[in-house]
Amino acid sequence: MNGRERTLTFLQGSDVDRPPLHPIVMRWAAAYAGVRYSSFCQDYRAKCPAMLRCAEEFGFDWVTTLSDPYAEASAFGIEVEYPEQDLPVDRGGHLPSAEAAARLQPFDPMHHARTRNRIREIEEFRRVAGTYFIVGWVEGPIAEYGDLRGLTNASMDFFDDPDAVHEALDVITGCAIDFITRQVEAGADCIGIGDAFCSQIGPDLYRTFAFEREKRMVDHVHKLGAIAKLHICGNTNALIPDMIRTGADIVDVDHLVPSMEPYAGLLAPHQVFSGKCDPVGVIQNGTSQDIEACVRESWRQAGGRCIVSAGCEIPPGTSTSNLEAFAASSRSILHSSGAARGSAESGRG
C-alpha cells in the first residue's frame, strides 16, 4: 500500500496497514535536503526533490506544496522578500483601507511567478511522486485578507467596515476557487485551505466572514473530484464544529485544542482529523516515548479517525531521530490496536 492508496483508503473508511502520516515539513525539509529556503519557496525544481526525499526516507504518505503563506499575496501585489535561509518576509504593499480592499482585482494564477510555480510543482509531483498523496494549497479568505491588510487592520475592519470586508473576501474567494481548479487540473489529490488567522477571531466573526466562503471552497474541491483539507492552527476549540460543517474531508487540529474527543462524533463518515501533537513541546523537544504517547493519545481522542500529524509545521530544529520516532509511532499504533480502520464504526466507537 503506497502513501496515496493508504490515505485515500483511510478516508474512505476502509482498513489500512497503518494510519497515514502527514507531517508538515517546510524549513525542515529544505534544510535536510540542503536546499536554500528562498529556492524552496520559489522554485519547484528545488522543492519537489526535497519533499520527495523526506517522504521516501521517513515514510511520509504525502507530498505538499506548503512553504509560506505569500503566494497569493504576491499575486495580489504584496512585496515579499525571500531571505536565503529563512521564511519570506512581507515588506509592504498592504492595502491602505478596507475600501481599497473592496476594490481588489482578481489575479490569474498563470500570470504570477509564485502561483504559476505552485501549479508547476503539482505537475512535477504528479510526474515523479504519483505514489504519494499530493496536496496543493490555497490561502483561506480570512488569512489572505490578513496578509493583504495586516492582521491589526484586518481585525478592526471586521467592525469598522464589514461591507467592504465582505466584498474583498468575495474577490479573494473567487481567486482561490480559480487557483484550486488549476491545482486539481495539474494533478493535486487534495487541496489544503489554510486559514490560520481564524483561530484569532473567534466563532462569531468566523461564522460571519469565513464559514460560508470556506464551505464554497470545499464544495468546489469536491466538485472537481478532489479531497479538501481545512487547516486552522492555534486554539480552534470553539471553531471545530463549524470546521467540520464545512464538509472538509481532513480537519486539522492543533495541539492547543484541549481534546478532539468531544468532536469526534461530529465527523461524517468521509471526514477525519489530522493532528494534534505539539510541534515544539513534543516533536522537537520531546523524547521518542513522549512522541509515541502523543500519537497514541491523538488516535484515542479521535476514535481512530485521525491522520498522524503535528498541529502545525515541524520546527526546523527537530532532530532527525525525533522525526524518525514520529514516523515509527504511526506504525506502532498497529501493534496496540490492530489494523487501523478509517471506518465510521471504529471512529464513533
Binding site: L87, G234, C312, E313, P315
Partner: peptide, 8 residues
Amino acid sequence: ALLTTTMP
C-alpha cells in the same frame, strides 16, 4: 509569536 515558524 503567532506561529511555530517565528518563535525560534
